[in-house]
Design a protein around this nucleic acid. Structure first.
Lengths: 380, 380
DNA sequence: GAGGCGGATTTGACCGGTCAAAGCGGCTCC
DNA sequence: GGAGCCGCTTTGACCGGTCAAATCCGCCTC
């Protein structure tokens, strides 16, 4: 129980230097001081200089709460922290850092709040609190999913927000959003593998989710097709029940057992899955990266530190963050000094490591472009 | 450039429901409404009920800025986000989440700001801004290091803060701090290995840092000593130049080459190092977990997903967060309803996985307790 | 029946800024 | 030489709450 008479840090707060103190010190009115800070052109150079000197010598800092009260702006953007869907929505700390860094030059900061993961209603309630109390001027909605109630609610309310994640299942959504182009990522991975001669490129994904997982799978289907639409370079696919290596290893082991159409390469929907695939190949007696090429997704630490190093797709986190910030500040009417980075899909980058850089499978006699017969490779 | 006449979300902000609106609706004065919310016992039950009904029916929410202006409290705690020293200070996103969750019941939230990593002066400048402007009531100082200027500056200024990380090199520091007991973690790891029969337990660490790294090494020295102080169960040590697997692998490879005193177990100062150790053992033709037991530190994804799974030390992140929050709120004079969780060291938990669970080295003839001759194991 | 009392409620001032309008020379112009 | 204007500066009101003091009112006491 706090003792009343023990001096506490909070009580010791230095007496505030107010705008009046500065005014008195400089021998002007409070409004003149205010103008010196917000509209310097209104002052005569001499006064301006004098006020500025007083400001520095007294160490005056405008009070945030007082400003917020009249301006109706808190200078804060809300963001939920906490668990996310897959590990796939990885690097949450890096994203937050980049968001903070991107918002800083515009005088905005981030307020972290929490709400149970996946509970749209709870999160909406939290938004309601924050916005109604004026705690934040806008929010970033992360991890969108099909049937997401949050964007609609915010839009209805006329709140400023931007979504990290596309409006799955609602292509007409009018709000700004930013997402990494998962389909492009998979195309890059498949293209890389095809260029290395692979013609039986399999896929390891999750159960259908109506969102990113499906998009990656669809991109794999498309990218492994030949010019005529035939599955020219397509291998078998495996579905892991969860986004973790064990689930993936089990699913991949089953694939590898079927010698008939064993893949020479596997495109995985996440690094965690890819790690499982690596393990499954090794367990089957093969050498990942040599016998079966493997690619992951997200370029997490897992990918960088795996052995062999895992080829993966790196999100342009800084670009994503910057776009999110500029889009939402633009909505708030903040003058960025330039037009905001365009919303929409941003491209990932393929990071090639040993898991897909081994010797390509034995090349067979060249057939029609992009549709050579799949070379047969013994999975061992 | 924002068009002035295009309606923007910010402009569309619903007209605020103020305390006066509620007062009018309920037929009372504004102060009565204020009392209904902050000191209900002052009102007659009838009035209270009436006011409450008006509050709900109008959807009134007290304005944060207005409250902050008079109360001189922002309800926010500042925390720097961004890069940290080793990956060792891992799980930054989980920590933030737990901090937010711990602060919520007390009506506090977190404000994320950034400052270049390792630049005490820049971070202090940021604190100055935040505290002077009343943006935050307190700050959490993360990642303390020897000669850290931040705690001293904050203490001087009389600011409320708590440190995540002990006051390295300044045992008399008066501020509250919370840290994980790294030495205990290493003792747990060594104890576990000794119990499994290991008598040549090596160490993989970083160059001397005057902080956590040294503490872990010292704990290894102490824990591998016998009752008489002799290095009864001590193997050789390796120092990795950086906190990454490659550096560790190189250093460990050198150790393994020396067959004379090859370790049967390696305690590593981080998961990243341990991963390198695993690789080095495998490269030397051994089976990690069977020929050489390995333990990491921090129980990151790397540890859980490594093959074999990596025995590691899990930080009690929730406890750390809760303690940090309670300590700092106590400093602010917030009534927690109980005494704050005690500051200081909190214990990590050993998570045993396959990397240290393999068959123990061949037991030699039992010698004096705790000081049996180290069993000889062929590193292959 | 006046005085006293205490709970319930209201009024006025203030937190630290900003907006809008007014004041105040000095100058130009007719 | 007074009207009009302009640039600089000040005054008053207000943002939406809360604190402190004042008021109101019913009731009890002597």
């Amino acid at each position: 129980m706090p003792t009343a008479d023990a001096p506490r840090a909070a009580d010791a707060r230095a007496p505030r230097v107010t705008i009046r103190a500065v005014a008195e010190h400089a021998g002007v009115s409070r409004q003149t001081v205010s103008n010196a800070l917000n509209a310097p052109h209104r002052l005569s150079p001499a006064t301006l200089e004098r006020v500025r000197r007083s400001v520095t010598s007294l160490g005056y800092r405008p009070d945030h709460a007082a400003r917020a009260l009249t301006s109706r702006r808190s200078g804060l953007i809300g963001i939920r922290v906490g668990s996310t869907a897959h590990r796939t929505a990885a690097h949450p700390d890096r994203l937050l850092h980049e968001l903070v860094a991107a918002a800083r030059p515009h005088g905005y900061r981030f307020l972290a709040f929490d709400a149970p993961y996946g509970d749209d209603a709870a999160e909406i309630a939290a938004y309601g609190e924050l916005l109604a109390a004026g705690d934040v001027d806008a929010v970033v909605v992360a991890d969108t999913h099909p049937g997401d109630a949050r964007p609609a609610w915010l839009a209805d309310r006329g709140a400023a927000f931007v979504a990290h994640g596309q409006p799955w299942g609602d292509p007409d959504a009018a709000h700004p959003w930013v997402d990494v182009d998962g389909a492009l990522g998979v195309r890059l991975a498949v293209g890389h593998l095809r260029a290395r001669g692979h013609r039986r490129i399999g896929f390891v994904g999750w159960p259908a989710d109506g969102a990113g997982g499906d998009a990656r799978r669809a991109a794999w289907l498309a990218a492994t097709a030949g010019a005529d639409g035939t599955p020219a370079a397509r291998g078998p696919e495996a579905t892991a029940a969860a986004d973790d290596p064990d689930a993936a290893a089990a699913a991949v082991a089953a694939l590898l057992g079927r010698s008939a159409d064993a893949p020479t390469a596997l495109v995985c929907a996440s690094d965690a899955l890819a790690l499982g695939a690596l393990a499954a190949v090794a367990d089957a007696g093969g050498t990942p990266g040599r016998d079966v090429a493997i690619t992951g997704y997200d370029d997490s630490d897992l990918a960088a530190f795996a052995r062999p190093g895992l080829t993966s797709l790196r999100q342009p986190i800084r670009l994503v963050a910057q776009t999110l910030v500029e889009q939402v500040l633009d909505r708030l009417g903040v003058d960025l000094g330039h037009r905001p980075a365009p919303a929409g899909l941003v491209p990932p980058e393929l990071v090639v490591r040993a898991s897909s850089a081994g010797p390509a499978p034995r090349a067979a006699a060249p057939g029609p472009a992009d549709a050579r017969p799949a070379p047969r490779t013994t999975a061992a």
